[in-house]
Design a protein around this nucleic acid. Structure first.
Length: 269
DNA sequence: ATTCGGACCTGAAAGC
DNA sequence: TGCTTTCAGGTCCGAA
């Protein structure tokens, strides 16, 4: 479900609502979410202060006292929900952090793909080696350098987390439309003008999506239950057969690298 | 090195 | 009204 703009929105909301709060208890870690050893370690969290919450790629990082960190990946359907402790817990709730005075933060995940790791010290041990840089912190020169070393199709490259961390299926399609580039075009041999269009298109799409609080297509909502608004600005994603907003040609859908891909055959070359 | 298909899960929507 | 199939904001693994 969540890509960079959604995870960023969740992180900001959690940081604002729970940053500085003390964890009173932790319950219900399901085996899917966390291995047995990690579940035992969760006991250490009691009484620990949550210093802050931030994002790296599509990962959510909870920084705690005593050099401990919780690193979540939400995969397709993971979500956080702030609620009153008395409220009924449904069968998709896999972790509950209590903050006292009846305040709880629950992790729900219908498809159970989401993962949590509890680490001491640096979060890097919980992240994949070779995770790419943050797209919005990447200068144009560095972007051109990284791009020059890559092959394969543009769509697959944008989805590759070792190239850039945080772009997923929605934003890959929207970025390529913004840049006017065919998702099937090979990454190698992209001339500088097109490469710079890709860089600036990426920045425009991602930063606007963050400002809109991400895209709510199916079930994404932030920790305060608010829906994103960027879905109203999608130009191609989920619009197969509909007219292109720019030229009127029918938006096409095909499968690239096993992922559904949407593009305008006239605007994207 | 890249690409492909399948696996991991559940449920909503579309198709018949 | 069913029942079946397809599809989904992600990633990992093994085989071609």
């Amino acid at each position: 479900m969540p890509e960079l703009p959604e995870v960023e929105t969740i992180a900001r909301g959690l940081d604002r609502r729970f940053g500085g709060c003390r964890i009173a208890g932790c319950r219900y870690a399901s085996p899917h979410l966390l291995k047995a050893a990690g579940r035992a370690d969760l006991r250490r969290l009691r009484g620990c202060r949550l210093l802050g919450v931030r994002r790296r790629g599509k990962y959510l990082i909870f920084d705690l006292e005593r050099g401990t960190r919780l690193v979540f990946h939400l995969k397709m359907t993971g979500q956080f929900l702030e609620c009153a402790s008395g409220r009924e817990r449904d069968r998709h709730t896999h972790l509950v952090l209590s903050f006292g005075r009846g305040r709880e933060l629950r992790f729900r995940d219908v498809r159970k793909f989401g993962r949590l790791r509890l680490v001491r010290g640096d979060e890097r041990s919980a992240l994949p080696a070779g995770l790419g840089p943050e797209p919005l912190a990447l200068g144009r020169r560095r972007f051109l350098e990284l791009l020059g070393a890559r092959r394969g199709r543009l769509k697959s490259l944008l989805l590759n987390q070792r190239f850039l961390a945080g772009i997923g299926n929605i934003y890959a399609d929207e970025i390529l439309f913004e840049a006017g580039l065919d998702p099937l075009r090979p990454a190698s041999g992209l001339d500088e003008a097109r490469a710079l269009r890709l860089w600036s298109g990426m920045r425009r799409i991602l930063s606007r999506a963050v400002r809109r609080g991400g895209s709510s297509i199916r079930d994404y909502a932030d920790a305060e239950g608010r829906l994103g608004r960027f879905q109203f600005e999608h130009k191609v994603y989920g619009r197969a057969g509909a007219p292109c907003a720019r030229c009127g040609a029918a938006v096409r859908r095909l499968v690239v690298g096993g992922r559904s891909t949407h593009f305008c055959p006239r605007c994207q070359k």
